[in-house]
Amino acid sequence: MVDFIILGIVVGVSYGLLALPLSLLFIATGTVDFALGAYAVLAGLVCFVVGGPLGMVAGILSAVLAASLVGLVSRLLDHNRRSDHLTLVLASFGFAIFLESFVLSTFGEQPYVRQPFTDYWDILGTRVSPQAGVNLAAALVVLAVTFGLLYATPVGRMMRASAINPRGATLAGIPVHIMRASTFVFAGLLAGIAGVLHLYTSGLSYSSGMHLALSGFGAAIIFGLKSPLRAFLGGIAIGVVESLSNGYLPSHVATVVPLFFIFGILILQGTSRTFSGGRA
């Protein structure tokens, strides 16, 4: 049982890392950006291509930069349609398809993966790749930086204020449009980090984006889309449920168990205050 929980946490971290920017953008714009998975794919593949000749650090930096730039482009799409949430969601699907086509034409159909570790750790009798430790450490750093930025800096306070009450933020002298653009860039950066970790964990191909976005969305909605921390924890929860069901149930049943888990939590949200809400 412990080994499945450990594996679930490892998988859940990657879901949580995508749920985090999804939640941030939802707070800032009131909509769900389904193109975030495509940002992650683009970042992962840029990391692979640049990291080969120039080294891992250059690869990671260029990947995160690419995802941040795509976040900024997404902000430009948002700029003209900000009053219509449904249009924004549809636009994010369109942008995701555009990025997928761009990645297909630039990087080709083949999957990309980097697995620098050949040895495994033995944790309570479970073989765990050191990459899982890297993912967990990266996730903790990302969480700490995100929450440090949002809750302990004036810029974070202004970002939250702009998301909560744009008119009030304007009257407080805050440049709301710059804060919104910063949120998009930061979300792109987080998706880029998630993409790089996926490249080093399970690999990526041009078509991985929508699967990643839906996994992140599922993670984000179960404990409250309005709270980045709850969104991240939602990723861990889904990962553990998925791992346990894979371990103890027939495969055809195990596939649907995480979905029933999400439905169950959503139904509980309607009847209980425990699972609902969240704080920007």
Binding site: R160, T170, A172, G173, I174, A280
Partner: peptide, 29 residues
């Protein structure tokens, strides 16, 4: 000038129904 720069220049506006406060932030924030 846009509204946020007018505010920075010193023109303060309290809209009706306390529209310039942030309900989920603390008073201190």
């Amino acid at each position: 000038l846009p509204a946020h720069l007018r505010a920075r220049r010193g023109l303060a506006f309290v809209p009706e129904i306390r529209g310039n406060i942030f309900p989920v932030l603390s008073v201190e924030e």
